[in-house]
Computed example of a mutant assay.
Amino acid sequence: MSFENIKISIPNTSYSNYTIYHILITIDTKSYTLYKRYSDFYNLKIELENLYSIQIPYKFPQKSLFNTEKLIEYRRLSLENWLNEIINDKFDLKWKKSLQFKEFLNLKPTIFSSIEESNREKLDTVWQLTLDNNDTTLSQWDQLLKESQIDLNESKSLIYKSLDQSKKKLIIGRNKYNQLNKNLAKFNQLSNEQLKLRESLLSSLNKEIITIENLQSIDNKDLIKQSTRKIGSSIETSKTEKLNNQQLLQLQRQTFNQQDQDLKELNQIIIKQKELGISINNELIQQNELLNQLNEEVDHTDNKLHYANKRTDKFI
């Protein structure tokens, strides 16, 4: 599906303790509406910039302590332009191709992507299940868990063979994990032990996803080149040229073991960084709430002053 088929607008807003922006998304002949706060847009912006370690080049409305009608209208137009600039940019594609942006607008994970039609159908099917499947039984949940584990195992085994195929398998497995995580809470018939067991399985699944993502982020070309001895070729290094095949195999095992250890340490560092990022995000959300409360109090005080000035004018 090409991006020309997508139209995005924010035709209006509503207010319920805070301003809600109504995002109208039209894809071909189908339309749907999403409801987002300004903080949702801001959190998406920060998440994307952290993902690519660069600022988004499109103009984004700044935060403000005051929430006037003029400011709301300015934000509505600015946020609408911001989304359309991301969608319509034909040169810098990474923003709209990111899963975070697609999930924000509830778009299919295969949109803006050039992948095989068979894989596109599989991904879209899993994505649709995460949205519509509210009738998942416990047995179906357990079966989906097994399928997700298989997908992740296949993704891990493909890292050194075909990185693209490995990433596609990871997306399928991760989407199934998201569906599992979403549907677990509705099984009220589970005992505490059964619930904790499945929560533990989901936690292990999430750790495996993080591990695979870390492995996929490493350039494996040098590793493959150094671990392959071709008959009749002269690609030996000074360290391996005097070793026989058995000694070379032992060296490779030692190298892989060391790399596994390094990856485990790297994984721990990334997990800590992720926890720190989540803490910072939670703090930002709390600060946004405080800003909204302060804004409401300022409006309330302004109304009181306006009323007091009117009463004062009567005595002058």
Rank of each mutant, 00 (worst) to 15 (best):
F101H: 08
L65N: 13
E213F: 02
K45M: 02
I278L: 15
I209A: 01
T237C: 03
T26S: 14
I23K: 14
L266H: 14
T19A: 06
I269V: 15
L152F: 07
Y58D: 03
K167P: 00
K96L: 06
S204I: 08
K36R: 15
S203T: 09
N188H: 09
F66E: 07
P61I: 07
E289A: 11
D313K: 15
Q140M: 00
Q246P: 01
S155L: 03
Q55D: 09
T26L: 12
S227G: 04
N50S: 10
K36A: 02
L170S: 02
Q100R: 11
Y32D: 00
N295R: 15
N153P: 00
F315V: 13
E103Y: 07
F41D: 04
K167V: 03
N192V: 10
I231K: 14
I111E: 05
K161I: 09
L305Y: 13
L105T: 06
L65I: 11
E208C: 06
L190T: 13
L284K: 15
I218S: 05
L263S: 13
W127N: 04
Q286Y: 14
S238I: 14
Y177H: 06
S200L: 01
N214H: 04
Y32E: 02
L197D: 02
K239N: 03
L105N: 04
Y42V: 09
K146M: 07
N153F: 02
Q189R: 14
S16L: 11
D142E: 14
L305A: 10
T211H: 10
L294T: 12
S233V: 08
L248R: 14
L145R: 10
I8G: 06
V298L: 13
I224D: 00
S98F: 00
K94W: 10
Q165W: 00
K108L: 10
T312P: 01
N257C: 07
E154P: 06
R198V: 03
N84W: 05
I212K: 10
L190R: 13
Y35W: 09
N281W: 05
R253L: 15
T68E: 04
P11N: 09
Q254R: 11
L263M: 12
N244K: 08
K156H: 01
N309H: 13
L305Q: 12
S53P: 01
Q143R: 08
L266W: 11
L51F: 12
E103G: 02
Y177K: 08
W141K: 11
E117G: 00
N84S: 02
D299Y: 12
E147L: 10
E289P: 04
I212H: 08
Q179G: 00
N257T: 13
I20A: 01
T312Y: 15
E121M: 05
E85K: 15
W127V: 07
E289H: 13
N288D: 15
I280G: 06
N119A: 03
